[in-house]
Amino acid sequence: MADSFHFNISMISRGKRKSAVASAAYISCEKLTNEWDGVTHDYHNKKGNFIHTYAGIELRLKMYEIMKKQGHEEETGKAKITSGYNLPAKYILHTVGPIIQWEVTGKEEELLASCYRECLKLAADTGAESVAFCCLSTGVFRFPQQRAAEIATETVKNYINEDSRIKKSYLTYSRTMI
């Protein structure tokens, strides 16, 4: 893989939290989460474009198929799953996070939590024991990073404490939050 993108990673495993620095491009996990805008032509600069680029053209073609069959854009807070293609992950989870217009509302916080829950459920249903998440909606979607990280940590921790099929989850945060 060409470049390596470094993030602070908080690993949650059965209620215990550990911190480490790792390379997101080389995380050893079964599922990698891709923030996605629900359409097949996302040209703005965000994490999803890196995932699409490194996964290869097959991923873009698969997403086009999914959207065409579905007949509408993906709903915020929902998720889809595809193969990992050229990435070092078996699968990629795709979710649409909330876009913040002014201030964060309770509805937007719930939609963000739903992104994580939907991804975890898809991962568990396909037999994965580990999932890696980027901090969803914090780029061009403008969700405040600190609050998004709190929602992610709480949601993932609650989920893996209730569903024993997921053993580990990796949450990535920007270095500017440290």
Rank of each mutant, 00 (worst) to 15 (best):
S137H: 06
A2H: 08
H94C: 01
M11L: 13
I27F: 03
H6F: 11
T153V: 09
H94Q: 02
D3R: 05
R175H: 14
I99L: 09
E35H: 05
E35N: 06
K69Y: 14
T126I: 11
R60W: 02
A55Y: 00
K62H: 07
C119Q: 03
R17T: 15
T153A: 13
H41N: 15
C134Y: 03
S83R: 10
I151T: 06
D163C: 05
P144S: 15
I151V: 06
I151Q: 05
E75C: 12
K121H: 11
G15R: 09
C115A: 10
L111R: 08
F133P: 03
R17Q: 14
S83I: 11
E109N: 14
A148Y: 00
R17V: 11
N86Q: 13
L122K: 06
S28D: 14
W102P: 14
I57S: 04
V96P: 01
E108F: 09
N161W: 02
A149K: 02
Y43L: 13
A2F: 10
R175C: 09
H94T: 00
K68S: 10
E162C: 08
K167V: 05
M1T: 10
I100T: 14
T138P: 12
L32G: 02
Y91I: 01
S174I: 08
I81T: 02
D125G: 12
H6Y: 12
G127P: 07
L87Y: 00
K31A: 07
K68I: 10
L111C: 11
W102C: 15
I178D: 15
T95P: 01
E110D: 09
I178W: 13
Y91H: 09
E108N: 08
E150G: 12
R142F: 14
Q146H: 10
W102S: 15
E75M: 15
I99W: 08
Y116Q: 03
G139I: 04
A113T: 05
Y173F: 11
K168I: 03
K18H: 09
T40S: 07
V156Q: 03
E103G: 09
L59N: 04
K80C: 08
A152F: 00
K90Y: 07
G15K: 06
S137Q: 11
S137V: 12
I178L: 15
F7A: 07
E118V: 13
N86L: 15
F133H: 01
I66S: 10
S13G: 04
H44P: 05
F7D: 05
I81V: 03
H52M: 11
F5E: 13
S174Y: 11
I57W: 06
D125T: 04
C135V: 13
I100W: 07
H94S: 00
F133D: 02
F141G: 01
Y54D: 01
L136M: 14
I81P: 00
R60K: 09
S174K: 11
E108T: 08
A149F: 02
K18C: 12
I51H: 00
G97L: 13
K78Y: 06
V156T: 06
S169N: 07
H94L: 01
L111D: 04
I12E: 01
K47D: 01
H52I: 09
K46P: 07
S114Y: 02
A152S: 04
R175A: 11
H44I: 15
T155D: 10
L122A: 04
E65S: 08
L59D: 01
P144F: 15
Y54P: 00
I166D: 00
K46W: 10
G139Y: 07
